[in-house]
Amino acid sequence: MEPPKIWREKRQRYLGIGVKCLDCDYKAFPLTSFCPSCGSGNVQEYKLAEKGRIIQFTQVNQTSNDMMANVPYAIGIIELEDGIKVTGQIVDIDYSLIEIGMPVRMVLRVLSKDGTEGLIKYGFKFIPVD
């Protein structure tokens, strides 16, 4: 991944910053400068809900080189409490114990490493809620 892209996306990836429309209340992620629903430019950044539940999930065994250190890992679609849906890894739990509907919480983790000397890319993943 190119450094300008990491810089551009860092607040979304590190903090989970989305956008909400002050005119129609629509919420969206990733960031946009206007409301994807009503088109209004009257939008404000906000922090996504940290908690959500698993909609569907599976396991990844083969991916690009910079993420191969983590395989096999679980990936799923998570619906957050504010209604936003995102794709993310489900970590800190044995794969056989993951279930649809399971409550999870957003955490910051390493997503990929470009070799031993390249950039390390961070982003959010999900862990089970106790």
């Binding site: 991944m1 990733p30 990844v60 083969q62 991916t63 794709t87 993310g88 890319k121």
Partner: peptide, 14 residues
């Protein structure tokens, strides 16, 4: 979605 699926760890197969 390269940024929000692939880079988050998803693949086409998954």
């Amino acid at each position: 979605d390269y940024s929000w699926e692939f880079e988050m760890g998803a693949t086409l197969t998954s």
